[in-house]
Each structure stands twice: as structure tokens, then as C-alpha cells.
Simulated assay, not measured.
Amino acid sequence: MPSLAKIAATIAAIAALLTGSATACLGTDLPEGRLVEIENPLASSQPLQGYLRQPRDAGPLPAVVLLHGCNGGWRQLDQRWGKLIVSWGYVTLTVDRFGPRGLSSTCTGGPPPATVFDAYRALDFLVQQPFVDRDRVAVLGFSQGGLLALTSVEGGMIERISNDKFHAAIAFYPPCLGIKDSMTVPTLILIGELDDWTLAKECRNLVEGRDDYGISRQKGLGVPIEFIVYPGAYHGFDVPGLATPIQFLGHRLEFNQAARDQSVDAVRKFLYATIGGQEK
């Protein structure tokens, strides 16, 4: 087993790679975003913060909450996807799940229990903004953030006790093992065929109505999941900084240009079909 120091060094190296993976030229007319406090610091000992981007269009507009993976890197996620999605006419809020909690990585375990409501805490912030249409907000997560996106819209306790609801969800290469309930809103899962960290077959079981042991779930419940598997793609296929593949905790991370391009098109079409926005 690698030492903690080696794991920390690898995480730092990945962060450096992600820093250089900003979205390619989107033009210079994009509005600047701003760091926001998602909730009043007095309301929580660990108040969330995030990076908010708002199109120049008049509102109220559809919006997307973005959730980073187990390595953190919310700034890089905003650069990679926040900038792109706001250029399509959506408000974006990229959540920093780690900073307020003093975390740097949660890759050797599951998401901390304190983070499971973060998507809804971000949603609560967005629906209070006059430029956001509260009935057209989606959640988009990556890897561990993808798991949190799915658990935010499956028919369990988290979704039931939340006042406002997401109206769509997207998960990039999420760990699907352990998701027990059906989805309550249109959901899109995108994953690499060769992903050896979050396995496509586990997500296929979820999509096709089987549980983790291959046993059928109750039929006819929930909203169908759209499922896309990209041939030849590994974990992190949308991250240009991984053009040179790396091994991390025994798993291969690798950028795949074809899968990235196809996923951009899939996300745009899915968002337009579910919460509206600019048609391609």
C-alpha cells in the first residue's frame, strides 16, 4: 500500500494537471464569475462556498450545480465545465465541498456524511436568486461528485426531505454500486468502457433495473436513466490535463478527446431537453 506521503504527492500532481486543463477558447465575451458564500456563516460551522457564473441574458434562467470529485479541484472544474455551460445560457454554481471543511482528498473512502446534502444546500442558494428559475435547476457531478448527484435525485431520504427539487441530474463516471432507489428526475450517466475505478457494468445494472447482485428491482418505478458508455475511455476522460495517462490508487486516469467531445454534445442536448436553455 502506498504511503500517505506518496498519496498526497500524487494528489498534488493531479491537481497541477487539472490546473492546466481549462476549457479551450470560448471567446472573450464570457461574463466573469464570483466567489459566493452559499449560506450564512452564522447558520453553519462549516458554511459552503462556491463559484457563481451568470450569463448576460435576462433571467430567470435555468441553472446547474457542479460537484467535484474526491480530489477537490472546484476551480479547475469551473474552468473546464462551468465556463462552457454558462456560455450555453445557464447559471452555474461550482461547489467547494472541501475548503470549508479543511479537506484535500477523500479518495481512499466514500464521501464524508457531512457532504451528502451539499447539492441541496447549493440549490437552496440558487433558488433565492432572482435571475434563477427555481423549476429549472440540474445537478452535475464527477466521480464521487457524480455519486452525490445520483443520491440527490434517487427516491431516498435526501430527496424527500428537501423543499426544492432538482429537475435533472448528470453523473460522469460515478460509483454506481450501492445506489438502491430509482431516480426521481431525468438522469444521464456517462462512463468510459475501460474505467477500472467506477465500473460501467455496475452503472448498467442500475440503469437496467438490477441491484448490485443482479437481482431485479421493482419494475416500473422511477424515471428511466439515459446511459452512455464511451469505447476505449478510462476514468477522467473529460480532463485534458490527463492527456498523458497516470496511475492513481491503482487506477488508470486518461483523457480521451473523442469521448470528451461526445460528452459535451450529450450534456448540452440533455440539459436543453430537461431544463431548457439555448438550442444547439
Rank of each mutant, 00 (worst) to 15 (best):
G241V: 05
F125M: 05
L177H: 13
G69K: 02
G89K: 11
P112K: 06
I225W: 03
S105Y: 11
R204L: 15
C176N: 08
L271Q: 06
H235K: 10
V64M: 04
L61H: 03
G27C: 04
G192H: 07
R75L: 03
S105A: 14
L221V: 15
L206V: 08
E202L: 15
F237T: 11
Q79Y: 01
I246K: 06
G222I: 08
T94V: 06
A243I: 08
Y173I: 07
A168I: 03
F166V: 12
L48G: 03
Y51M: 04
T115Y: 02
K83I: 01
R53M: 08
P130R: 10
C203Y: 11
Q218F: 06
H167T: 09
P231G: 07
Y90A: 02
L48V: 07
F131T: 12
F131Y: 14
D261N: 15
A171S: 13
R260S: 15
K180R: 15
F237K: 08
R160P: 00
L206Q: 11
E159W: 14
A138M: 09
I191D: 04
T92Y: 06
L4I: 11
A258W: 13
G209C: 11
R121L: 10
I158C: 01
L66H: 03
P31G: 03
S263M: 10
S152P: 01
A243M: 05
G145R: 01
P231M: 03
Q257R: 13
P175A: 07
W88T: 04
K83G: 04
V64S: 00
Q46V: 12
A15D: 11
A24L: 14
D29C: 09
F270Q: 09
I191Y: 01
S104T: 15
V64K: 02
Y213G: 15
I275C: 13
L271I: 02
A138D: 03
